[in-house]
């Protein structure tokens, strides 16, 4: 029971991270019908930028651990969002009218490009986050000790997801995004600036991915230039699991995948941990390609 509970909380924390990355995939897919293969690398950029800012600005020493990390996450989100916009301008906008395969290949090229840029700047070895940023204490939850870090991670991702959901549902820009997701041509005729919508999507998606990058760095303590591809693929699995193009779906799918993976690693085999996620991916695509929450046309984003 103890092990089950620990794995469950671990899975929830990691699942929150998957969900944040998955939101980037699902929003881009919703609006542009494109799998942004470079999204995983934007996530890596986020974790490296977080590491650089953390060690160079010493924010956590100056303004306290929690506030420091918060400011750090916000800064990284802004920077990665800008990278996302630049990426869209350079690699995807010229291909808006081309066949889908061209955009996919361009996305793969962008992924290779970004990954190797990170490698040239930081080197191929693992980098380590300082370990004493957030206090290492455990909170008693239902009689079991749960590391504070997991609770913070889960809460942070939940807050971001709820904020995004409200943004998409309640604001004017959110309505424009939903409209562009349903029919770009019709949205344009209704006076919606579709290019602006795409830009916002490429700001929010990578920003959330960048935040997830910092969170992974803080949770696992180490980052590597190739890690984005595995996290990206798993987050994509999460997006498919929940129903791609569907924002609540990405959240549910991410958390579900995190839990499935953690429990699978604990009870089946740790060596097959990554394979479990991909088996979930293949099964869901064979059995229910629309995902758990379906491709609800009216709310597709």
């Amino acid at each position: 029971m103890e092990q089950f509970f620990q794995q469950l909380t671990n899975g929830l924390a990691v699942g929150g991270i998957y969900a944040l990355i998955a939101l980037g995939y699902t929003m881009v897919y919703g609006v542009m019908k494109l799998i942004n293969f470079a999204h995983g690398d934007l996530f890596t950029i986020g974790s490296y930028l977080g590491l650089t800012l953390l060690t160079s600005l010493m924010l956590t020493d100056r303004i306290g651990a929690f506030l420091g990390v918060l400011v750090l996450v916000v800064m990284v989100m802004g920077l990665v969002g800008v990278v996302g916009i630049v990426l869209e301008r350079a690699a995807y906008r010229p291909l808006r009218e081309s066949p889908r395969l061209s955009a996919v290949v361009s996305a793969l090229g962008a992924s290779i490009f970004l990954q190797n840029t990170i490698m040239l700047i930081y080197g191929a070895k693992f980098h380590f986050y300082p370990q004493d940023i957030l206090p290492k204490m455990a909170i008693n939850l239902l009689g079991f000790p749960v590391p504070l870090m997991r609770i913070i991670l889960l809460l942070t991702s939940l807050v971001m997801m709820i904020a995004l959901y409200l943004f998409i549902q309640k604001t004017k820009i959110g309505t424009a995004i939903r409209a562009a997701a349903i029919d770009q041509g019709a949205a344009r005729l209704m006076g919606i600036d579709v290019n602006g919508v795409v830009m916002i999507v490429f700001l929010i998606g990578p920003a959330l991915g960048g935040a997830a990058g910092v969170m992974v760095g803080l949770y696992y303590g180490q980052v590597n230039f190739t890690m984005g591809w595995l996290y990206g693929l798993k987050a994509f699995t999460a997006a498919i699991l929940g129903g791609i193009g569907n924002i609540p779906g990405a959240m549910v799918g991410g958390i579900l995948l995190g839990v499935i993976e953690a429990l699978g690693a604990a009870y089946i085999s740790i060596a097959w941990k990554d394979a479990i996620a991909f088996c979930v991916l293949i099964l869901i695509l064979i059995v229910r390609p629309t995902g758990l929450l379906g491709e609800r046309v009216a709310e597709k984003v």
Binding site: A90, A91, L95, S98, S102, A103, V105, S106, L108, G109, A110, S111, I112, F113, L114, Q115, N116, T117, M119, L120
Partner: peptide, 15 residues
């Protein structure tokens, strides 16, 4: 070192 970088760039430009 820069080989893969150029490769990725070439893929984007080609498309």
């Amino acid at each position: 070192d820069a080989r893969m970088l150029i490769f990725g760039l070439a893929m984007m430009l080609m498309m």
